[in-house]
Amino acid sequence: MSEARRAILARIRAQLARPPSAEEAARHDVAARLARTAPVLIPARAQLEGEARIALFCEKARTLGCAIERLPDLGALSGAVLAALRRHNLPLELVRAADPLLDAAALEAEPLLSVRIGVPEESDAVGLTVALAGVAETGTIMLASSRARPTLLAFLPETSLVVLPCAWIKGSYEEAWAMLRALPGWPPRSVNLVTGPSRTGDIPPSIELGAHGPKRLILFLIDRIG
């Protein structure tokens, strides 16, 4: 290992001056700490169940500028997507994740909608992907990268469409993370906690949306999947 690494670690140890007798206890302590995945403190606000939890999620996300549409099942998705694109005068084309949920939604069967699967390009105006969880506490969605779900789908296009099954909405970040941990391939390369559309306050006096990431974030909550 590098000389700089050795020097920095030596400086740290010299400053900490941990006695040799305490070394083993410290290592044990650190190992125990790293093995402990239990939440430290979950605010009471996040400890909700069922509809109340979904309601808090929607309230928080709407306050931040998200549009939310609640759909009974995946069969209703293509119609809702089409209507949303029309409402915002957007081209009726999008690039989407290869996620099985979106396969099941049969968007390609909608004749007016042009759908491509893959990574978005600069010219793509609309991206559609699937969130792995929602967090009611702050109206946050949790995205995770994979072969099927390129990260850029929710960052490059100006309009970001995200599908989220209602059952995947949790109260806190910690519960959402626990869901993710249970999936194969954990930890994914990139996990994005997205809370509202991209925003900036750098040019006074107002907060503007769409600084670099999406200007528009439309969430489709699905009541029943599969």
Binding site: G118, T151, R189, S190, V191, N192, L193, S198, G213
Partner: peptide, 17 residues
Amino acid sequence: AYTTFLTGPKREDERDG
């Protein structure tokens, strides 16, 4: 708005990163 956890570079089967 964006909190991102990054763990390593692009995986072999991934299409971006």
